[in-house]
Simulated scan of single mutants.
Amino acid sequence: MSWKITAFAPRSVVEGALLAHEDAFDWDPDIVISGSEIAEDRPDDWQLEAWLPHKPKKADREALAALFADGAPAFSEEKLPDTDWLVTSQQDLEPIRAGRFHVHTPDHPEIKEAGVFDFTIPASQAFGTGQHATTAGCLAMLTHMKQQGIVVRNCADIGTGTGLLAFAALSLWPYALATASDIDAVCASVVEDNAARNGIALGADKGELVMTIADGMAHPLLAARGPYDLIMANILAGPLVSMAPDFAAALQPGGHLVLAGLLETQEAAVRQSCRRAGMRIAARVVNGDWSILWLRKRRGHG
């Protein structure tokens, strides 16, 4: 049984609540929230939705209300049928083209086009089909890096979800070592299944992918397989800020860092933390409200 709580408010109010959620370190992980515009022709009218695996309790409502700095809007509650809403929401997603990549669910056919890498990513319990603006932006950024002549021999995808960014890196740099990690244990089988579906070899040699479950960079395998010349992390702004020193320590001098999952309004804080860790901006793109950053570790730093 699952329930949904919905609140309607101006965009700035909902975005503020989403930012507060990122800083709520004691947040119940069973409560999943998202914010979105109500309609394309009403860009300033947004909704915040929260999904719960149980009937909302007083503590749940209070936790949601606390996200709104100037008072919470009215909440509506509804019981949902027993459906995997993440899977259902992804089944009808249109394919995307980003850089040299075409990403689609099994409901859509692959394309056979010279120079284009086609990935089939089914709807699953892990994030990362590529339809999200941050993932699409990362694919475009990796393509840009390849066009700029960047050579990658050892890469890591932190917070990999479905494995898509790791797959993309191996497609662009097929002789690289590749490591993927995620804090969510369900992602291990998801990545393995998607690797088999897309012809990505699993293993520890060049051109192969190693998958592990890890909290950030704190894992012996991630340490043993470093240092890296490319780290990718499409997660959230808060963890990106706190993990900047860990990313820098795991990169070779001159190594590359691709970050996403941050709103454009959060970019300054992320860049400042990276600058303090010895990294400088190489390029940035904005996809919708989201920033995608390419940074480089300064040579001679650490």
Rank of each mutant, 00 (worst) to 15 (best):
G16F: 12
R275Q: 14
L19Y: 13
P109V: 00
A233Q: 00
K297H: 13
L80I: 06
H108W: 15
P29R: 10
H104G: 02
L262N: 04
A218N: 10
M141L: 15
D41K: 05
H144M: 12
R298S: 14
D92F: 12
T129Q: 07
D205Y: 01
A98Q: 02
L164A: 03
L64C: 06
P245S: 08
M211H: 06
S34N: 14
M279V: 07
C155Y: 01
W27V: 07
P81M: 06
R61Q: 11
Q272C: 11
I33S: 07
I111L: 08
A126S: 11
A188P: 00
P106R: 08
E37T: 10
E94V: 01
H108R: 15
G128C: 05
P56N: 02
D60F: 02
K4G: 03
R61G: 09
L177H: 13
K55L: 07
Q90A: 11
G159F: 05
M1S: 15
M232D: 01
R275G: 12
L139E: 07
V32C: 10
D157G: 08
D70C: 05
K146H: 14
E22L: 14
I281E: 15
V151A: 15
E267V: 00
L142K: 05
T129P: 00
I150H: 14
I292N: 08
E37D: 12
A50T: 12
L263T: 00
R42Q: 14
D107M: 13
G115Q: 05
G226E: 06
L93C: 11
V32F: 12
F127E: 02
A244M: 11
R197A: 04
D215T: 11
L139S: 06
E113S: 04
H108Q: 15
A69I: 07
M243T: 01
I213F: 04
A169F: 10
G115D: 05
L177G: 06
D45L: 14
P53R: 03
H54C: 03
G16W: 11
A268E: 15
E37V: 10
E208V: 02
G254C: 01
L262D: 02
V14E: 14
G199F: 03
H102M: 02
I38P: 03
R275I: 04
H102D: 01
V285D: 13
A180L: 05
S171P: 06
A244F: 05
A133H: 11
T83Y: 09
G302F: 09
R280G: 13
A250Y: 01
L230R: 03
G137N: 09
T143A: 12
D229E: 03
A224L: 07
D184K: 07
M211A: 07
A39K: 12
M217C: 07
A224Q: 13
D157P: 08
S34C: 13
I96L: 06
A59L: 07
L202P: 00
D92A: 15
G300R: 13
L202D: 03
T105H: 13
H102R: 13
S291F: 04
E62H: 09
A65K: 11
E208W: 01
N154E: 07
D23F: 15
I235W: 01
L257I: 02
P227V: 00
I281C: 09
A196Y: 09
A168G: 08
D84H: 14
P73D: 04
P109F: 08
T160H: 06
A282P: 07
P245H: 09
S76L: 14
A169V: 06
I281A: 12
